[in-house]
Each structure stands twice: as C-alpha cells, then as structure tokens.
Design a binder for these strands. Structure first.
Lengths: 203, 203
DNA sequence: ACATTAAACTGCACTCAGTGCAAACATTAA
DNA sequence: TTAATGTTTGCACTGAGTGCAGTTTAATGT
C-alpha cells in the first residue's frame, strides 16, 4: 500500500533527533494517506491528521510545507530514484529508448491498486490536481538535466529538451489511457510502449 | 494592455441584466489585473479587488469561482478562439504544420509586453503557477478534440493524441526559451518554429 | 553530572480564500 | 401592479497557512 511512501531510509548512524524526525515524517505520511483514502482528500482536515499522528497542527508545517506536499513528496522521491538509474545509462543507447525502458521498469515496481488509489486521490481535489500537473513540469525539467548529463554534446540539447517533454507527456497519456481503458488485462507498460511508438508515426 | 482580457463581447440585443453582468465582469478583471501588476498577486486581497470594483466581496464569487480564475479566464477564451480557427482547416494539410502556423499567428496577435506581464504574474505565485500548468493539460485535451474533428480517420487518433501533447509542450518550451533568452531580437515565433523542428530530429 | 546551546514542539492569535444561508433588492413578463 | 426570477449583500463559518513567543528536549562542552 504505502510502499511508494516508504522513502525515509535510515542512514548508517543517526542521532535521536534525526531518527525521531524521520519517524514522525513517515507517520504523518502514512496517517494522512490512510485518512485521504477513507475520508477523501478535501474531507480530511489538517487538525485530524495532526491529531492522529500525535503532533500539534502547528508542528505539521515543520514537516510538510502544505497539505498537497504529503502526497507529492512521495511521488517526487520515486521520480528522483528513476533519474538516478538514468544517470548510469550508456550514452551509446538512443536516449528515447533508454527513457522508455526505465519508465516501464519504474511502473512495474508498483502495484496497480497503489497507482489507482493515488491516481483517484489526485483526481478528487482541484488544487491537488493542479499541483500534480505542476509536478509534471518539474519532473520534465529534472529529466532534461539528467539527459544532458548522459548525452553531453551541446548540439543535442534542444532535441533533449523536447525529448524530456515528450517522455513525460507519453507517460501521462499512457496512464490516462490505462485508467480509462475498459480492458483490465492490458498492462500500464503496454500503454507506455504504445505511446512511445506514436512518436515515430506520421503527424 | 488588457486586450487579452477584452473578451466580453456584447451580443446584438441584450437586456439590462446581461449588459450589467458583462460590464461588472469586465470591470473586475481590469481592476484585478491592474492591482496584481502593481501590488503583486499574493499582495492583492479579494477585499481590495471587490472594493475597487465597487461590489461586495461575496458578489465576487458569483463572477469568478476563484482568485486564479480572473487570470485564467482570459487565457482560456483566447485559446478557444484559436481552436475555432483550427476547425476551419483543410484535412489535406499535415496536422503538425496546421497547428504550428496557427500558434505562430496566435502569438503574433499579442504584444510582448502583455505576454511578459502575464507570464511574470504567473511565476509570482505558487498556486497560480500550478493552475496555469493545469490549464495546459486542459488545452491539450481541447486541442485533441478539435484535431479529431478535422482529421476524422479513427486510426489516426493515437497519433493525434500525441500530437496535441507535443504541440502544447512545444509552445511551453518555446515560451520558456524566449523568456530566458538574452537576445531581445529573437521573436517568440522563431522559438516556436525551432521547437517544432526538433520533433523531426533524431532522438 | 551539570550547564549551555540550539533545535524542535506547542499554543495563540492572526490573515485570507472560499462557502452556505437568508434577507433585501432589481429586472422582467403577466 | 403583481408575481416570478435573478442578483447583491451581510453574516457567520470552515480550513489552510503564518508569525511569534515560550517551553521542552536532545546535543555538546566542561
């Protein structure tokens, strides 16, 4: 369930301060996600989250800078780990294929129930949806930076910029197509492959 | 200045009710934009906007459903008019070229001062930025629908879906490149053409 | 073991966006 | 003029987010 949110790995050695902080953060995220899924996003107030997590409402804001952040933080960390993998890629591979394969592998790390739950959550609130889409732009920028690290020729930069945009877009479209698909046997991965194939078709 | 916001055209015949409503809406938009540009977006409260527009704070919400909406409404209407032009396009033209040319023409209808002012405004507030990026997704969807109206073969739909995404993305990247460009002689249009050319390069 | 320092937690009072409701008001059509 | 309908308003409320000042708690030096 909250595998995607289990991102607060403990370093080799840490003091009580660090440990407590990490634990509290984790607890807030878990509690909040549970409440969001049962009571809905807008139906869950920060007061309740704070209470359930055993902290004061004011303290919440020293862990997350806003309510949206509770959810976005997890997605962001997950994305960062994918970019870490990208940096290990050989520059001999065509960048579009490298990204496509990484995305498929990333998607397959999560169960569909997880993804649908988070996805429905995003759809349930206007402001959360807006933030999520704002995050796409941020991911696109980070992806572009990572691409430039691997394929370093300056003359490729404009193409890499567009590639970053198309990759995020393809992922977005694939997820949407999968969500709206009536066929439960089709995997998310297959939708991603379809989307990437479209890039090469005649426009 | 507010050319982009002058979207409340009066129909041939209208009663007092319609006219007043249109005028009030227009007045709110003008007043708000002026205040945003001088005091900043976050620095302008709805109380002040309402006061300056000569209405009560409560009434504001019967004209715009949120503070963001004041700005987004104008952009949305502008986009809708571009889609209207797209529907008149011949299906013999390659869709990617049709969109590219329409976008260039659309951009050239606005002065760069206008665009930069609105752009900076968007950048100045977190939530406004998020909504703007949310709007991109909406525009993409509307563009896709319009494309399907013109190029009706069902087998082209997946490609058109990707094309809609790439077009909005190209526009976004072009505007960003232009904003960050040090060369004041380069036009927005030239950045758009560059972006569209990248679609055909080897990825 | 004790005192010092710095980080983290808390309550309180505040601002601002946004909503529901019911009363007052204006426009339209009969 | 009257009845129906649409618009404006004030009021009281919720909920997110912030600034501040005081307290608690962990880390560090002696």
């Amino acid at each position: 369930m909250s595998e995607i949110h289990t991102l607060f790995v403990s370093p080799a050695s840490e003091g009580v301060r660090e440990r407590k902080r990490r634990e509290t953060r984790q607890r807030i995220a878990e509690v909040a996600l549970r409440l969001f899924l049962t009571q809905g996003y807008d139906g869950t107030t920060l007061d309740v989250i704070a209470e359930e997590a055993g902290i004061s409402r004011r303290t919440f804001f020293s862990y997350f800078k806003s309510k949206d952040d509770i959810i976005l933080f997890g997605v962001e960390a997950d994305w960062a780990s994918m970019l870490g993998d990208l940096l290990k890629t050989s520059p001999d591979i065509a960048p579009i294929n490298a990204i496509r394969d990484l995305m498929v592998r990333r998607i397959e790390r999560h169960t569909t129930e997880q993804m649908q739950a988070i996805d429905n959550l995003m759809l349930s609130s206007e402001s959360l949806l807006a933030r999520k889409q704002s995050l796409y732009i941020k991911q696109e920028q980070l992806l572009f930076n990572a691409l430039c690290e691997v394929w370093r020729q300056p003359e490729r930069r404009p193409a890499l910029r567009m590639l970053a945009m198309m990759s995020i877009g393809a992922m977005r479209i694939a997820l949407q197509a999968w969500r709206e698909s009536s066929d439960p046997n089709k995997t998310v991965s297959s939708f991603i492959l379809d989307a990437f194939n479209c890039v090469r078709t005649e426009l």
